[in-house]
Each structure stands twice: as structure tokens, then as C-alpha cells.
């Protein structure tokens, strides 16, 4: 079971997810220590492995730094559920084999701290705290293929061989 960390905000940007002052490294564990630091300094402390982030529109906008995905993944976040994602962040996540969920209503129906269970294949988020079921459209096939292969580079290697 995962806990939902809900940020009722649009345009949460990559500067907030991983500030540029930490971009002098690409080590995932180092980056993870500062995940979401400029938005919520207590985030990493309260996070348990497998928890999820829930947010509004345009999550991950701004810089192309894949460090944002690494910081989130490295911190132990299982997935991000947002109303929409910024383009480069979305691409980066798929390329890294990190699953993202686009959902129009999750932000309205899941409260901060709720326990959620996600069925990625069927496209269902169950909020165990309030009993609601939220459906989402699983990622398109080509993205699932990349994720299944373990990211874009593995995918390319497999395809070429």
C-alpha cells in the first residue's frame, strides 16, 4: 500500500523538484536527498518507499533535467499522478522506465495522506482511505514497451539485436 502525497498545485517545475544548486552531480541517491526540496522541505523525511505524488496540471515543467525523474525515483516514489505532465518530463520518465499516470480527477478525489493501491495494467487507482475508485488510461503501447524493456536505451539495444 502506498501513501499519497498530494500537492494541490499546477506547474510544479523541475527547479522545485531538484534545484539547480544540486545539478553538479548526476548521482541518483545524492539527488534523491533533495527531492522536492524547494516545494516541500520535509518531503524526503515523510516519504516511504512506494509512496506516490499527486499533483495538478503541467507537472515537471521547465528544464530538461532528467535529474528531476532520478530524484523522484531515487527517493522511492513509485509513480506521479498528475492531471497533465510537461512534455520533456513525460518523455524523460518513459525513457527511464518510470511509470506516470495522467488522471483528470485524482487531484480532486485523493486527499493528502490517503492510502492508495494502483493496478497499472487495468488502469485503476483505489483510494483505500475513502473507498473511491479512479480509472485512468494506461500509457500508450509504445511507452509500455519502452518501460517493459527497462528504458529507452535497453529498448534500442533489444530492437537493434
Amino acid at each position: 500500500m502506498s501513501k499519497a502525497h498530494v500537492y494541490k498545485r499546477d506547474h510544479i517545475n523541475t527547479d522545485e523538484i531538484i534545484p539547480a544548486r544540486y545539478l553538479n552531480t548526476d548521482n541518483e541517491q545524492e539527488l534523491a536527498r533533495h527531492c522536492m526540496e524547494d516545494l516541500d522541505a520535509g518531503f524526503v523525511k515523510k516519504l516511504n518507499k512506494g509512496d506516490v505524488i499527486v499533483a495538478g496540471d503541467d507537472f515537471g515543467c521547465g528544464s530538461s533535467r532528467e535529474h528531476a525523474v532520478w530524484a523522484i525515483r531515487g527517493a522511492g516514489v513509485a509513480t506521479v499522478i498528475a492531471r497533465t505532465f510537461a512534455r520533456i518530463f513525460y518523455r524523460n520518465a518513459i525513457d527511464c522506465g518510470f511509470y506516470l499516470i495522467e488522471s483528470k480527477d485524482a487531484i480532486e478525489r485523493i486527499a493528502d495522506g490517503d492510502e492508495v493501491q494502483i493496478d497499472y495494467d487495468k488502469g485503476i487507482i483505489e483510494d483505500k482511505t475513502n473507498g473511491q475508485r479512479i480509472e485512468f488510461r494506461p500509457l500508450p503501447d509504445f511507452a509500455l514497451e519502452i518501460i517493459k524493456d527497462g528504458g529507452l536505451l535497453e529498448h534500442i539495444k533489444k530492437r537493434k539485436s
Binding site: 520533456i88 536505451l153 534500442i156
Partner: peptide, 12 residues
Amino acid sequence: GIGSTDLAASIA
């Protein structure tokens, strides 16, 4: 603009 994995793929 792209991130590092896309960049790696483009370079290779």
C-alpha cells in the same frame, strides 16, 4: 529539448 536518456540515444 530532451533529457539525458534521449540524448544518449541520439548520440549513439
